[in-house]
Simulated assay, not measured.
Amino acid sequence: MSSVPSKLPSFLHSQLLVTPKHPETDCSGRTIIVTGANTGLGKEAARHIVRLNAERVIITARDASKGAAAVKDLEQTTGRKGVIEVWDLDLASYDNVKAFAKRVAGLPRLDAIIENAGINTTKFVEIGGNESTVTVNVVSTFLLALLVLPKLQETAKQFSIVPNLTIVSSEVHFFTAFPERESPNIFETLNNPKTARMSDRYNVSKLLEVFACRRIARHHPVSRLGVTINFVNPGFCRSELAREMNAVLISVMYAALARTTEVGSRTLVHAGTEADKSSHGQYMSDCKVQKCAKLVEGPHGKELEERVWQELSEKLEAIQPGVTKVLGPAV
């Protein structure tokens, strides 16, 4: 069973009684990427990072005009020009992800990447050999993570720092029973249009992110990797991700419970720019390390973690042979 009933009290407490702290860490000299930042959480996170004196902030968008509009808005509100750039990134295209990562490789440095881009859809569409949510939120997200890891590691050595690679996950990973785990091949089951449970798909995609992040961190400590990998829950926020939900229902939920995207974005900035090595492989919520769902922390969590990573890594290797080797030997 999912953890919805047991999670509800802490969810309500967080939404109604907790306000994540306003980011104040100076980012002078840093180059930071925020994906999916032409709107919503990503845009507000970028606004904070620019305000905090980052030297170079790269936001991504699939639509050039929307990206340009976001840059104009960020420059006007922060009073800083020549800092923000918008780069094309479409997680629905593996070739586009590879091209983006190649461009990242040419940067003088990369202090952090906050992987915020994602989709939430109830419509089954196949993209890149998977259901689109799986492709965008899981496969391409970790393809990008591994492809930019060498630049983060290079920066770590050159500037004697520990860069952060932050995946924007969600507390909705608590809300799925994940019945697909009972099948011999998890991803194959998720990609079957006849049995796909699309109403739960976003929740499952976020759970898969959790498993993958924890598996990488468990076998690749910061001492060897040189980079901190964490995953963050921004809380329930007003977001375009919910645009397919019932309009009346989402309006009521927004009015009663939702954080603004600015408040939610504070958690992204904390995980990407403030969280230290102790956050490696950890679930960050309300700007602190918290426990994951029982499916993750429970007795079968490690087994599921290994299965998810094995299947995911096979997909990643098929897309870009040798890509998982950048992690180095597992311990």
Score class of each variant (00 low, 15 high):
V136S: 01
V139H: 03
Q153H: 09
R103S: 13
R62Y: 07
D90Q: 04
A112H: 05
I113W: 00
P150G: 09
E85R: 13
Q153E: 08
E115Y: 02
E154V: 09
R109C: 14
G128Y: 01
G67P: 00
D90N: 14
E131R: 05
G118F: 05
L89Y: 00
V134D: 12
L143M: 11
T141H: 02
V138G: 03
R103K: 15
V71E: 00
N120D: 11
S140L: 04
E85I: 02
S93R: 06
V104A: 10
E131N: 08
G106M: 12
I84N: 01
G82H: 12
F124R: 05
F142W: 11
Q153C: 09
V148F: 01
G118M: 04
I114P: 01
N130D: 15
L149Q: 02
R103L: 11
V104L: 11
A112S: 15
D63M: 09
R109V: 09
A145W: 00
I84W: 00
N120I: 04
W87T: 02
G79N: 12
E126D: 13
K123A: 13
K102Q: 14
F124D: 04
N116T: 15
N130C: 15
L144E: 01
V83P: 04
V139E: 01
I114N: 02
L147F: 04
A92E: 09
A68G: 04
A112F: 06
D95H: 09
K151L: 11
K102E: 13
V139W: 02
